[in-house]
Design a binder for these strands. Structure first.
Lengths: 257, 257
DNA sequence: AGCGCTCGATTGGTAAGACCAATCCGGGGG
DNA sequence: CCCCCGGATTGGTCTTACCAATCGAGCGCT
């Protein structure tokens, strides 16, 4: 039945399966890995195939056969979708749909569709909102531990020479994440961390390179110091303002290039 | 060897395995899948093993041997970590560390450590902040399409009988996500969606059940209507206020139980 | 006839071995 | 000194096989 039914457009069939000795691999864009292809196809199948949350997908073996790939590869794809929260796997029972809509996960989107991800400006807008709020909340609930950790991060930042190639700017990131953690809301902390981790995406490398100059680094340190002072003083509004000023400055430095 | 050790009840040893180095190993909770175990062990290895971003991990084969598992299982774990953004796999080159700190991904955390995830209150706090801001921005840039989609979602919500078991409340979710999408910031939209999808976590089921009554549903519809009116009027501040009032009401209804 | 129980088919979980292709690195030739 | 070229390394994929948990259907007991 479905044997030859996969006319899929852009994706086409990656391989002709079993006995075919021809690995054409006319992959349109880059040497993507098979499990990513499969995951994307399954996701499309969920969206356009009339699947609703709670529905059960075909068994692994059938899925593999229908997609013309091996079971291990299919398993890899299913695991990717499981980690991304799109499906749920119940042992000996089946694979079930969790959410039907398009993927919300930034990383899986990037892996699956080559989506470059959100631009730095959008992310900075969000950092302004989230980290400003985090600073405000942190000011009134800062513990001695938090304060010490922030001092340490600031000192580390003073010492190192700014962003390091290939590993971002650990001290900078630590400072911001520490504030987010001190806000008392784990979701807020998680989102801030996610925004910072997104900098590893290709789009951001250039930006990080561009702001590695020594004077920009000094500016950053000064702005951080200002934020820390407000936090230590318990001045929530001041902390928010200082954070906003800092991120506005980051955006300005970025635009200068 | 552990061959005869399966006195356990249901879960006991997942495998007997060759003569592997790591026997049954007391799994604390539930019959986790092997790849999750491996992923967790690798993550610990990254954190405590002195790995920094950019470092290369041992080859798959060696990793598998060292952990006492097969290569396919190891690959599954690596893919999970890759989707979560913790490592990066370069074909024919190796597996490289992307971020060193603890996992930021809510889903992977849940999978790996059984973490129940953030509570509804924390998430509602964030929804108030994010969706309030989204409503404010959407008010000044609402297109006719957005408006139509919102009207449709509101109508759908009026029709259906409130939250449906096992699939949340599609119309409600659609309304909120549409506003977030209309905010013009894709990161904001993504985060809002992520918050809504988090409701699938076990912790939230009870809450959704509890607010299924007809009168609560009517309240929700009324509040949505209010928000939509502000949006259509281009009243940003009013939209934010209406959204805040709505989510405060949601929190209140939740607490009533 | 109704109920519980067992057994087997289904389905995910894991392992082992093999081969391919891209990459990397070092040695040899220009 | 630089370029080119192989082989070793390393991930990518397939095939096969078997184990274990689940679930439902049919059988036997009450």
């Amino acid at each position: 039945m479905a044997a030859t039914g996969h006319c899929a457009i852009g994706t086409d069939l990656v391989r002709t399966v079993t006995e075919s000795g021809t690995p054409p691999e006319a992959r349109s864009s880059g040497p993507r890995r098979l499990y990513q292809d499969i995951a994307r196809r399954i996701e499309i199948m969920l969206r356009d195939g009339g699947y609703a949350p709670g529905d059960r997908l075909p068994p692994e073996r059938e899925l593999a056969q229908r997609l013309g790939v091996s079971r291990p590869s299919t398993r890899e794809a299913v695991i990717a979708l499981e980690v991304a929260g799109i499906v749920e796997v119940r042992t000996s029972s089946g694979i079930y749909v969790r959410i039907a809509g398009p993927t919300s996960d930034i990383r899986l989107r990037h892996l699956l569709s080559g989506d470059p991800g959100p631009g730095p400006y959008e992310a900075l807008e969000m950092r302004r909102l989230l980290e400003g709020e985090a600073a405000y909340r942190a000011a009134t609930r800062l513990t001695e531990n938090d304060s010490a950790a922030l001092r340490e991060a600031l000192a580390a930042m003073r010492d190192d020479g700014g962003p390091v190639a290939d590993r971002g700017n650990p001290a900078d990131q630590a400072f911001h994440e520490q504030i987010a953690a001190a806000s008392g809301n784990s979701v807020l902390a998680m989102m801030v961390r996610e925004l910072w981790n997104a900098r590893a995406l290709p789009l951001w490398r250039r930006w990080i390179e561009r702001t590695r100059t020594a004077d920009m680094h000094l500016e950053r340190v000064r702005e951080h110091k200002q934020i820390l002072e407000c936090l230590n003083a318990g001045d929530g509004d001041g902390a928010r303002e200082a954070m906003h000023a800092h991120i506005d400055a980051v955006a300005r430095r970025f635009a200068q290039g």
